[in-house]
Design a protein around this nucleic acid. Structure first.
Lengths: 195, 195
DNA sequence: TATTTTTGATTGACTGATCAATCAATAAAA
DNA sequence: TTTTATTGATTGATCAGTCAATCAAAAATA
């Protein structure tokens, strides 16, 4: 079995396993054993590559935010007009894998963790800021800067809120309905400014 | 010290202590010792009265949702018109103690816990439904039922979203700004329907 | 009133389980 | 032979939960 160059393979497997276990469990109180088992290696190996459980979890949130970022970048590139770019940002936020119950459970756990882990908090703040600035940048092409900031704040809150409500799985909202609601928020606000 | 009739006093002290410790800690991974210490009693006594840590935590969320409910009921009674009642619901959601960082941290922890504890989830679902139905009931007096449901969904999501964003403490939004944003959402939507 | 009994309140000490982290040992490539 | 990958076994710490013992108020009884 021992071949050279396993490090990146194992790191990825462990990070993916962590996300899955956290999502299933709906909490960050997961054991290294569970994660390692899910990744098909021994707990000791997880420590070998990550040093500590905390580091593995931080790496996990970092990697997944990076993937989310990549999705946004791609979607933004494909959209042409500012209005299309706004829709693209919304669409990515609610895309299937992001809106899956286990993914939401995992994000929720990370948000809670951010209360204690400064590093986790920093990553989430960066994500929040990026969402906000993506929205503002494109809104500015459609309305005044002051209004853009306000509408972006509202839209970002609505997106996050739809997520957290989804996590309760009571009266679950479909992806389409979530997108429609957020789109509607933008449209109504922009129209109100014109009128 | 041992006087009769301490049970209600201790239960209350422990529930309050739990909320404080959870808020400080920003997580439900708090020890019975911490909670008991905060309440000024021994860990054994906490077990004596609550049977288990889980029961104490469930009781904690139950008690605090009950308090929130009482605030809403009072505020609704004081408001006369449907539009005023909508404002009252919003105002209570963001009232000072609810919007304090530790309180938000605690709620976030409970949302995460709901992924695992069916009982915690049930309480939070009830709260979410109540918020929704309070909004719908009063919106129906101002627009069609279908629009009322949609607007209520959006407003509830926005309220929850403003909470979760507050938990990150990056670009913190003031109570007033949060209220204004939600009020604005309602007003803009209702106006759009008239126009 | 004085004395005894009962009962609720309370804790320190203990147990058993869990888990992160370590480490020495092994196996296979280079 | 040196280096990299890997694990089983172990350790030390933490914690929920238990239990037997103590203490003092209240209730019953003399």
């Amino acid at each position: 079995m021992p071949k050279v160059g396993m490090e990146p393979v194992r790191r990825k497997a462990l990070v993916d396993a962590a996300m899955r276990v956290i999502g299933d469990h709906g909490s960050l109180t997961v054991t290294m054993s569970e994660i390692a088992k899910q990744a098909g290696v021994s707990p000791a190996l997880a420590h070998h590559y990550f040093g500590s459980k905390e580091q593995l979890l931080i790496e996990t949130v970092r990697v997944h935010l990076q993937r989310l970022r990549d999705s946004v970048v791609t979607a933004l590139r494909e959209a042409k007009s500012p209005r299309d770019k706004l829709s693209a940002v919304i669409r990515v936020s609610f895309q299937a894998d992001q809106f899956a119950p286990e993914t939401i459970a995992a994000w929720l756990a990370f948000y809670a963790e951010a209360q204690r882990s400064e590093e986790t908090r920093r990553f989430l703040v960066i994500y929040a800021r990026r969402l906000h600035s993506n929205l503002v940048a494109n809104l500015k092409a459609l309305c005044l800067a002051g209004d853009a900031a306000r509408i972006a704040e509202g839209a970002a809150a609505m997106i996050d809120g739809l997520y957290i409500r989804q996590s309760l799985r009571s009266a679950p909202i479909s992806t389409e309905a979530s997108i429609a609601l957020t789109e509607d928020y933008l449209t109504t606000n922009l129209n109100a400014l014109k009128g």
